[in-house]
């Protein structure tokens, strides 16, 4: 742009240049949006992420299954009495990510632990029934989770997250 006009005397020319520049900036910014927005999940991906129902009746005590919801593995564990007691006996304040077992399961369905099976360290999938805490062990960098899916040892900063779910009947849950 020219610098012919001085700052002390704003002229009509300055106004025109500023207005044109501002319009170009606004138009350019608005035009950018579709190019960014297209990266977000498309409508079919979002639709495929709808809630799923899982039948719990085939899962025996002490067993667990892995189902996929929105491309993420969800561990559903039918915990034993021992596992529940262990999870509840811990001093919550001593945990790296303090959270009580009661807050991580649905009351009345304490035997069912539903967690997203993705290590909170760097996204690997922990192995169930391994490690020193009767819970999960992540083979990538050695994080250990207890029978409530809480982080106990290793580099992971947080507990395994609990996905949104509810019991539609005693033996059926809806995830999502």
């Amino acid at each position: 742009m020219t610098t012919a006009s001085s700052a002390d005397h704003p002229t009509r020319r300055d106004f025109l240049f500023v207005a044109t520049g501002a319009a170009a900036a606004v138009g350019g910014a608005a035009a950018l949006w579709p190019f960014i927005s297209q990266m977000n999940p498309d409508a079919s991906t979002i639709a495929a992420g709808a809630p799923i129902e899982v039948d719990l009746s085939p899962i025996a005590e002490g067993q667990d299954i892995k189902v996929f919801w929105r491309g993420k593995p969800i561990y559903i564990s039918h915990r034993t009495k021992k596992q529940i007691d262990e999870a509840r006996a811990v001093n919550v304040a001593s945990l790296p990510d303090p959270q009580s077992d009661e807050a991580r399961v649905k009351s009345g369905h304490e035997q069912w632990l539903v967690v997203i099976g993705i290590c909170t360290h760097l996204g690997c999938i922990p192995i169930a029934h391994e490690g020193s805490y009767d819970g999960f062990f992540c083979p990538c960098h050695g994080s250990q989770y207890d029978s409530s899916g809480r982080i106990r040892q290793g580099p992971a900063p947080a507990n395994l997250p609990v996905p949104p779910y509810q019991f539609v009947s005693d033996t059926k849950i809806q995830i999502g």
């Binding site: 579709p34 190019f35 927005s37 297209q38 498309d42």
Partner: peptide, 13 residues
């Protein structure tokens, strides 16, 4: 067709 129908602004692009 999925680009045009489902991707955000896919029809535009």
């Amino acid at each position: 067709e999925l680009i045009v129908r489902d991707v955000n602004y896919g029809w535009l692009l």
